[in-house]
Simulated assay, not measured.
Amino acid sequence: MLPVLLTLLIVLLNVGGVASILLQFGHGEWSPAMRSTALLLGLDVVGLWLLRRLREPG
Rank of each mutant, 00 (worst) to 15 (best):
M1I: 12
M1S: 13
L2Y: 02
L2W: 00
L2S: 14
P3K: 13
P3Y: 13
V4H: 13
V4R: 14
L5I: 06
L5T: 03
L6F: 08
L6T: 11
L6M: 09
L6Y: 08
T7H: 05
T7Y: 05
T7A: 07
T7Q: 11
T7W: 09
L8C: 07
L8K: 09
L8E: 12
I10V: 04
V11Q: 03
V11I: 13
V11D: 02
L12G: 00
L12S: 02
N14G: 05
V15Y: 06
V15H: 02
G17V: 03
G17A: 05
G17L: 09
G17F: 12
G17W: 12
G17Q: 06
V18T: 08
V18S: 10
A19L: 14
A19F: 11
S20F: 13
S20L: 13
L22H: 07
L23I: 08
L23M: 15
Q24W: 12
Q24I: 04
F25Q: 05
G26T: 06
G26D: 03
H27I: 08
G28I: 07
G28H: 04
E29T: 00
E29Y: 05
E29D: 11
E29L: 09
E29I: 01
W30Q: 03
W30K: 03
S31V: 14
S31F: 14
S31I: 15
S31E: 07
P32C: 03
P32T: 02
A33P: 02
A33Y: 05
A33E: 06
M34Q: 10
R35D: 07
R35G: 01
R35Y: 15
S36Y: 02
T37P: 00
T37I: 03
A38V: 06
L39M: 11
L39E: 02
L40D: 01
L40E: 01
L41H: 04
G42D: 02
G42T: 05
L43N: 02
L43V: 10
L43D: 01
L43C: 03
L43A: 05
V45D: 01
V45T: 11
V46E: 02
L48N: 10
L48P: 04
L48F: 15
L48S: 10
W49K: 01
L50P: 00
L50V: 03
L51A: 02
R52E: 07
R52I: 15
R52T: 11
R52W: 15
R52K: 14
R53N: 00
R53F: 06
L54D: 00
L54W: 00
L54V: 00
R55A: 13
R55K: 12
E56P: 01
E56H: 09
E56A: 15
E56T: 11
E56V: 10
G58K: 06
G58Q: 08
